[in-house]
């Protein structure tokens, strides 16, 4: 409990935490609107098929996920960048206690940011679609509430993964590079690889798999929402365990 309070103080007392969280929420919604701007002027027959207004409204995750990932990374990398980690581990020598507290605080902030990003993106895009006379989704429609929870959990998991990447890389800039690679480049380029490898990246690359969590209308060849989320959970677990192992074994 003490270490939890300490980690919360560390996270809340730097402006970058709030700026990053706010940027995630705003950019998620703004990019969501930008994503549908093209169809807003058209008729329902111009819409792509199948039409999934829920998943479409969360297209802004493409950028927001990078910000929440950095939010997680920034919970630890400045400690390495400034060498404050030495003081932190002198005050709390147990790596398990320190990392558990950090992970809990980061998860809580990730959950709040993820929920805000998901709900705001969903709301503004559905309002815009409805205003344009296009088919929109309501929170009471079948599968929509589940997709919104899925979207929130997706961003929360990315935040936690960002923390683990921060521990592993011990550097803000390297964390950014790793997150851009894992969240943007691999999902974009991986499916283009030849044969089974490409298929694997298209379906099972954990980030891509996790994005199934916020679909309402099934996409051909993609995992179901719950399977996709499970793949992401397993992958994030693995990265967190690797981070803990590194923290334990490594000289600071």
């Amino acid at each position: 409990m003490n270490v939890l309070r300490s980690e919360w103080t560390k996270l809340r007392s730097v402006r970058s935490t709030w700026l990053t969280a706010l940027s995630a929420v705003v950019s998620g919604a703004a990019l969501g609107i930008l994503g549908v701007s093209e169809v807003l002027g058209g008729t329902p027959s111009d819409l792509p098929t199948p039409w999934d207004p829920t998943a479409t409204s969360l297209k802004g995750f493409l950028f927001a996920q990078l910000l929440v990932g950095m939010l997680g990374a920034l919970s630890i990398t400045p400690e390495y960048d400034t060498a404050m980690i030495g003081t932190s581990l002198s005050a709390v020598p147990s790596r398990a206690r320190l990392l558990r507290a950090k992970a809990l605080v980061v998860t809580a902030v990730g959950l709040a940011t993820g929920a805000a990003t998901t709900l705001l993106s969903f709301t503004v895009v559905q309002v815009a679609l409805r205003g344009a006379g296009l088919p929109a989704a309501g929170p009471g429609d079948p599968g929509v509430a589940g997709a919104l929870v899925g979207g929130t959990l997706y961003l929360t998991l990315v935040t936690l993964a960002g923390m683990a990447v921060g521990v592993l890389t011990r550097s803000t800039t390297t964390s950014l590079a790793v997150l851009v690679g894992a969240l943007l480049l691999v999902p974009a380029l991986g499916p283009g690889l030849p044969g089974a490898l490409g298929d694997w990246f298209a379906g099972y690359w954990p980030v891509t798999a996790g994005q199934a969590a916020y679909t309402v209308v099934p996409v051909d060849g993609a995992l179901t929402p719950s399977t996709g989320l499970a793949v992401l959970v397993l992958a994030v677990d693995a990265v967190v365990v690797a981070a803990y192992a590194a923290l334990r074994v490594r000289d600071v």
């Binding site: 300490s6 103080t9 560390k10 402006r15 400690e79 003081t87």
Partner: peptide, 18 residues
Amino acid sequence: AVHPHRTAYAHLLAFAQA
């Protein structure tokens, strides 16, 4: 080895709470 954007009070508070 301190976070430059944190206040002295918040820095000490974090370690006091730990």
